[in-house]
Amino acid sequence: MTGATGNIGRMVVDHLLAGGAEDVKALTNKPERAALPAGVEIVKGYLGRVSSLPAAFEGVDRMYLAPMLETIDEVVSLAKQAGIKQIVDLSGEAHWTPIAEAVENSGLDWTHLFTGDFQENATVWTEQIRASDEIRDPYPEVRSTPITMDDIARVAAKVLLSEGHSGQTYQITGPEALTRADRIHQIGTALGRTLTVRQVSTDEAIEIFARTMDTAEWYVEATGSMVGWEPEPTTTVADLTGAPATTFAQWAAANTDLFR
């Protein structure tokens, strides 16, 4: 398990244990703060510090590969040298394509987990929701099929614990396509409030989002690139795990504290 204390990686560890895994090795840069469950072997290391990886990879059969572009070629090479047989990578298209390409070119068995928008990214509106019932957004009409991090982790654990996934690329989405305005309205419903959405210029949006994120300009530009896209939800989560993906309304109802 690389990225074992990251947002998704930590959940993968829990789902592996719940699925009966008995030999989990977790890579973390700060073992003293890992707080991982009993029975997990904790090893110190970091994908960005490749010198720490040979010892960590020793004795590993299957690896969950967290996304890190900067060292992907070295990481994959070291994994092969260590005798790792299968890599399950969290990657995707566009910006993340080099990860999938490096894993495929390694000659090892591979499974790609391609994901899009996380439901948790809705916290981009937290500051505004706390301050007002009117939410300003540059592209309220943009649609996506947001997925929870926990659903991604459930799929990753299932793939790692079962056979028949070699050479597969799984598109992991939430169960429905929603506009950004749809999601804002559903957060309002969960809070017992009526939230309205006002479209603003990209410059105003960057100014708003820059209050809470360092990458506001990139975020607004990336969101704008999705105008006109009509995404189709997949049934991958349900097909692989036997339980449906979490709806955004369910996530919002369970996470109202994020917006209060």
Results as ranks from 00 to 15, higher is better:
residue 92 G to I: 14
residue 165 H to V: 00
residue 149 M to C: 07
residue 57 F to Q: 05
residue 130 R to T: 01
residue 5 T to C: 04
residue 225 S to P: 08
residue 125 W to I: 07
residue 170 Y to R: 04
residue 226 M to V: 14
residue 208 I to G: 10
residue 51 S to D: 15
residue 26 A to Q: 10
residue 46 Y to W: 12
residue 231 P to D: 05
residue 44 K to V: 10
residue 87 I to Q: 04
residue 222 A to Q: 14
residue 48 G to R: 15
residue 221 E to L: 01
residue 123 T to L: 06
residue 141 E to H: 12
residue 32 E to Q: 13
residue 197 V to C: 05
residue 57 F to N: 00
residue 123 T to M: 13
residue 32 E to P: 08
residue 153 A to D: 08
residue 225 S to V: 03
residue 30 K to W: 13
residue 200 V to E: 11
residue 92 G to N: 08
residue 174 G to I: 02
residue 116 G to A: 05
residue 83 G to C: 15
residue 136 R to D: 08
residue 98 P to A: 10
residue 166 S to E: 15
residue 102 A to V: 14
residue 48 G to W: 09
residue 160 L to Q: 01
residue 202 T to A: 12
residue 34 A to P: 08
residue 4 A to N: 06
residue 5 T to H: 12
residue 11 M to K: 15
residue 182 D to T: 05
residue 103 V to R: 01
residue 196 T to E: 00
residue 11 M to G: 07
residue 68 M to Y: 13
residue 100 A to F: 00
residue 94 A to G: 01
residue 188 G to Y: 11
residue 58 E to D: 01
residue 240 L to P: 08
residue 149 M to Q: 15
residue 115 T to W: 12
residue 19 G to D: 03
residue 257 D to L: 13
residue 167 G to M: 05
residue 164 G to S: 07
residue 203 D to W: 02
residue 154 R to V: 02
residue 241 T to P: 12
residue 117 D to C: 10
residue 184 I to S: 02
residue 84 I to K: 02
residue 89 D to C: 09
residue 111 T to Q: 06
residue 235 T to V: 09
residue 50 V to W: 01
residue 253 A to R: 13
residue 136 R to V: 12
residue 176 E to L: 08
residue 90 L to C: 05
residue 47 L to I: 14
residue 177 A to L: 00
residue 173 T to D: 10
residue 122 A to F: 13
residue 11 M to N: 12
residue 146 P to I: 08
residue 254 A to Y: 08
residue 244 P to N: 07
residue 74 E to N: 09
residue 1 M to D: 10
residue 97 T to C: 00
residue 170 Y to G: 00
residue 3 G to W: 10
residue 94 A to K: 11
residue 69 L to D: 04
residue 173 T to I: 11
residue 251 W to S: 02
residue 76 V to M: 09
residue 33 R to Q: 13
residue 126 T to P: 07
residue 54 P to H: 08
residue 49 R to M: 12
residue 111 T to I: 04
residue 231 P to R: 03
residue 63 M to R: 11
residue 106 S to L: 06
residue 177 A to Y: 01
residue 125 W to P: 00
residue 194 T to I: 01
residue 84 I to S: 03
residue 248 F to D: 02
residue 186 Q to S: 04
residue 21 A to V: 04
residue 33 R to W: 10
residue 176 E to Q: 13
residue 148 T to C: 13
residue 67 P to N: 12
residue 229 W to Y: 14
residue 11 M to E: 15
residue 170 Y to E: 03
residue 207 E to C: 05
residue 118 F to T: 03
residue 175 P to I: 06
residue 169 T to Q: 06
residue 13 V to K: 06
residue 227 V to D: 01
residue 67 P to T: 09
residue 196 T to F: 09
residue 113 L to A: 04
residue 249 A to C: 02
residue 28 T to R: 01
residue 180 R to G: 05
residue 111 T to L: 09
residue 62 R to M: 09
residue 172 I to L: 14
residue 251 W to H: 03
residue 138 P to D: 07
residue 13 V to R: 05
residue 224 G to Q: 04
residue 145 T to C: 11
residue 98 P to G: 09
residue 28 T to N: 00
residue 177 A to R: 11
residue 226 M to D: 07
residue 173 T to Q: 10
residue 124 V to F: 10
residue 65 L to T: 02
residue 130 R to M: 10
